[in-house]
Structure formats: C-alpha cells, structure tokens
Design a protein around this nucleic acid. Sequence first.
DNA 1: CTTAAACAGGACAAAATTGTCCGAATTAAT
DNA 2: ATTAATTCGGACAATTTTGTCCTGTTTAAG
Lengths: 144, 144
Amino acid sequence: MFSKACEYGIKAAIFIALKSYQGERVSLKDIAAKIDSPEAFTAKILQKLAKNDIVDSIKGAAGGFEIEKHKIASIQLAKIVDAIDGDSIYIGCGLGLNKCSEDHPCPVHHKFASVREELKKMLESTNLEELALGIKSGASYLKT
Amino acid sequence: MFSKACEYGIKAAIFIALKSYQGERVSLKDIAAKIDSPEAFTAKILQKLAKNDIVDSIKGAAGGFEIEKHKIASIQLAKIVDAIDGDSIYIGCGLGLNKCSEDHPCPVHHKFASVREELKKMLESTNLEELALGIKSGASYLKT
DNA sequence: CTTAAACAGGACAAAATTGTCCGAATTAAT
DNA sequence: ATTAATTCGGACAATTTTGTCCTGTTTAAG
Ligand code: FES
Ligand code: FES
C-alpha cells in the first residue's frame, strides 16, 4: 500500500511528534532505534520531511529533529504520504492507465475510485497529534 | 496499490473472459497488444493465472488462453490479486509491523484496517463477468 | 580553539520488481 | 513427417526501491 520509505516516514514523524510534545528533541539514531528502521535510509527520508516543512532539523551537537508543538495537530497523514510517495495513490489509475478519468475509465474505475476516496479521506482526517497520543497512552506501537 | 504484474494480470483476465464469452480463444500476442503490456512479462503472469486455475492455457498451434464460460461469473477480482500479489494487501500492517493485530496495533491500525476491509470487500464482490461486460459495452477501457 | 556530536548529501551496493531472450515442448495443419 | 504457431520455463538484463558508507558542514561545550 505504502512504500517502505513512507512507512518509515510516518513512524518517524509520529515519534518526533511524541517527543516534541514532551519538549524533547530526538536524534536520528534514536528515531531509527525506536521505529526499528535502517538508520541511513531513515536519514534520507527525514531530509524529505524537513524539506517539506513537516519536521525541523537542527544541525550540530545537541541537534536532531523536532516539530513545533503548535503544528503537531495540524499535520495530516496525507501531507506525509504526499511528501514521500507523491500523489499517485490519490489520483493514479488502479490498473495503470495513464490517467484515471471518468471519461475513459478502466474496468475497475468506479469500484476502485470509491475505495481510494475512502483512503484519501482517512489520510486527510488523521493528524499526527492523535497518532502520537495513541503511542503515549500505550494503545498502539511503533514496532514489532 | 497493486503491482504492475497484478495490473497486467487483471486486465489480461478481463480480456480473456471477454473473448471466451464470445467463444474465442486468445493468444499471448493478442492479449499483450490489447492490454498494452510487455509480451514476455505477460506470459509469466498468465502462467501464474493458469497454475491458479483462473485461466486455461492450451499449448500448440491454435492454442492460447481461455476461461470456461460457466466460470467467468464466479471468478472474483480477489482471486486474481491473491494469485499474483498474495494476501499481504489483506492481512499486512499498513506501517509494516510484522503482523497486523488488534492486540498490538500500529498507530494507524483502526483507521487503516477499515479502509483495507473496504478494499477487500470490493475485490471479493467484483467478478470477471461484470468487468468484461463493461469493456464489451464500451463503458470502460483496457488501455491508454 | 579544539573536539565531539550531530545532520546533509553524494556515491555506491543490494535486493526486489519489471522486463527480455531463447531453446524446448506441444499441437494443428499440410 | 514436416512445418508453423503457440505456450513453458529457465536464464538473463534493466529499472526501481531499499539500504549503506563516507566526507563535509554545523554547532554546543569545554
Ligand atoms: S481509470 Fe482506472 S481507476 Fe480510474
Ligand atoms: S497493526 Fe498496523 S494496520 Fe493493523
């Protein structure tokens, strides 16, 4: 469904949000350990998140990643997915036609488009804050 | 969402169903041309569909692929997807945890699982016959 | 100022997916 | 029987995705 990069990106963002909520800045090493992801690969993904203004990266000793507290609740899952995987999941044809359209639909268009719309709505209506709270409360987990 | 292999597989199955409905057997070359897919790669996928008893393959001159008419309406999209991509799309965790479960859910589990369930229902409730009829009636297209 | 901790980013490597080629086997038609 | 049309399947190649490594830069602390 999502690429590995996107999975790591989502988990990393959640973890950073959680820590930022508690006023802590986290290092790459910490992130990778907590979400169980390859460190160097995760670094690339964090660069993308930083370039897309989803997380802030601070260089130098005592540096790391953080998200401004007031932004946490306003970052939707959709924004992260879009930053990493692009928008093909929202607008691409399920059977790989050049372009998904009502005028020239593939055989599964109508059925597929509604599921895709569900997914889109879900991603747009879910924000980092609620996801981070789930981790904090022990209701959900980032690994294993 | 689906792999390329799966996309080709679905389109191929629809085309074969359409022709079988009209009592015609189709060759690999024909299929690849009509669904706009690489021929040799499509051959591999058809072998998988044949091994999974979704299509029948007939060797030799005047050979090709077909689906028994009476089976067309009973072949669900889910069966094709499962044959080619496996069941990870149904049972895998959206964030890549080893195992999706209620007991140890990832942060998006509840939201994701319901979309996934929608997808599953869609795939299970859609059969080759209706898809083929869409093509036959000109309501949908297999390429461009 | 020096050092150590951290991110940035380019080059590289491994693995998975997608795609190609070709010889072998099968079958219908001549 | 021979030939031509066709699928089968193994080996290979290209591309994309995933993952690693190393050097450079930034910055806090001593
Ligand atoms: S045209 Fe295929 S999903 Fe819309
Ligand atoms: S645990 Fe992640 S989707 Fe169920």
